[in-house]
Design a protein around this nucleic acid. Structure first.
Lengths: 257, 257
DNA sequence: CCTGCGCTCTCATATCATGAGAGGATGATC
DNA sequence: GATCATCCTCTCATGATATGAGAGCGCAGG
């Protein structure tokens, strides 16, 4: 059968989640009840975690998440995890779908940051992990922009007209706005040589457990290798990978009933 | 006997600590060995935590701290924990030692931030939780300054001379420097009406597990109620509380061998 | 094709966690 | 200042739960 769960660990995290949710002032009996545990069990679990620094019992009736958790969290960042989680998918994509694959996020300045990249040797591309790029001119950027809340998007569009990188770059705010609506509706973006001449790219969103777009995944190829009729299949494949990445990062949350 | 520990929870956190330390690229067999666990056990624990989002298995040989831990950590801050952990001690101090007690930290601008305060009704003081105060003129500030690394302290002293708040405020950098050396040596600070007329205060450092000063704890009283000969006893009591607070926040770390 | 490595799973065993409730301590109320 | 209400801690017999060795599977590189 599937790997059996360790009950105590489930319960421990249930307690942590419960404490985190309540911001830190619930009594042990209350917490125990919320997690469906006996007071004795909850107490043992909390005492164990307290000695590990994961929880602290500040005063009667008050439990809080401890510095230990903060310390552990210091080693994780959304960007780093996205990159790490996406890496295997990117590799597979380059082997089966398009010769190049990218993962990117949008920063607060509306710039796309490349977090991960994979390419087959024969098709180098001048993109670099960690570098930033304007959003309006790439598949990744269009997917990420399309997911922005109305107000932010308007602010971005107001920055236009934009600079043309190729003859096909969308530079007019109105045209970009229309394009983004289309992207949002169809669930993917198609970059038809808008960033580099002769390079096409398909991009799809990566979503968290709530469906919010947190990043985008793209596959790029020379235009001849990426004809229009191949797009639907590529989108499907990319979506499969995007779903996998999303699920890796955001599993069923630890609930506390 | 003392509350029994939950072995699985200890092991789970041992794994987390191990993964965090290695920055995220160790194979399951390696991690298991480092934590003294069998591969099967480590696998079960990790699988459980993975489904909770505490860990993610990005690709073969690579485990990382997951977003779940980040999310939990979002609810904890050093400041908040210090305040919460100190609160009971502050209350006790006001009942047994001095009518007012404060907890403060130093920010990057050399300002003391009051994180917690307790007072008995009969002795109000115009200090507010969350407000900031120059460091040179209070017991808390002197303790915190005395713990700064040489270079930072020099930078601060160069900002002087300071503004006198009472006739006894130390305003000359040279004098303050001498005072801080004394504070460092004796392990506590005595504020003899340097901040408010007729208000004396004794302050001691709160240290983390490594002995680094992270905050300071003070007891204040009207000058007549805090004669010089009572200082040693007050220092001892404050230190007891400071130790308690430090131990609450920084228990024996989760080690991974 | 074969080898090495990393991960997953099986199963009998006994360790380990369990939960009801008593007792002690602390703080609030009157 | 005394009483009451919480909250926390601990005990102990029971059995559910975690354990670990090792086999098997899939994958990647040689």
């Amino acid at each position: 059968m599937a790997t059996p769960r360790i009950q105590s660990v489930d319960r421990a995290f249930s307690l942590l989640a419960c404490i985190a949710r309540r911001g830190g002032s619930e009594s042990l009996p209350t917490i125990a009840a919320q997690c469906g545990l006996s007071v004795a069990t909850a107490h043992r679990l909390l005492a164990t975690m307290e000695s590990l620094g994961a929880v602290i019992h500040t005063s009667p009736g008050k439990y809080r998440i401890g510095l230990g958790v903060l310390e552990l969290g210091r080693h994780a960042s959304l960007d780093g995890l996205l990159a790490a989680a996406a890496d295997p998918s990117l590799r597979r994509i380059t082997q089966t779908i398009t010769p190049t694959a990218h993962l990117g996020v949008l920063d607060s300045e509306f710039m796309v940051t490349y977090l991960a990249k994979a390419t087959v040797r024969s098709h180098p591309l001048p993109t670099q992990i960690g570098s930033k790029l304007e959003a309006y001119c790439s598949g990744l950027g269009k997917v990420l922009l399309a997911a922005l809340p109305e107000a932010h998007l308007d602010a971005y569009l107001a920055e236009g007209p934009f600079i043309a990188l190729t003859g096909r770059t969308i530079i007019e705010p109105a045209a970009l706005s229309r394009e983004l609506i289309k992207v949002r509706e169809q669930g993917y973006a198609f970059d038809d040589c808008e960033l580099f001449d002769d390079l096409r790219c398909v991009a799809v969103p990566i979503r968290d457990a709530d469906g919010q777009v947190v990043a985008a995944l793209s596959g790029s190829a020379p235009a001849p290798r990426l004809p229009h009729q191949s797009v639907p299949a590529i989108v499907a494949e990319l979506n499969r990978h995007a779903g996998e990445i999303g699920r890796k990062l955001y599993p069923a949350q630890p609930v506390c009933n």
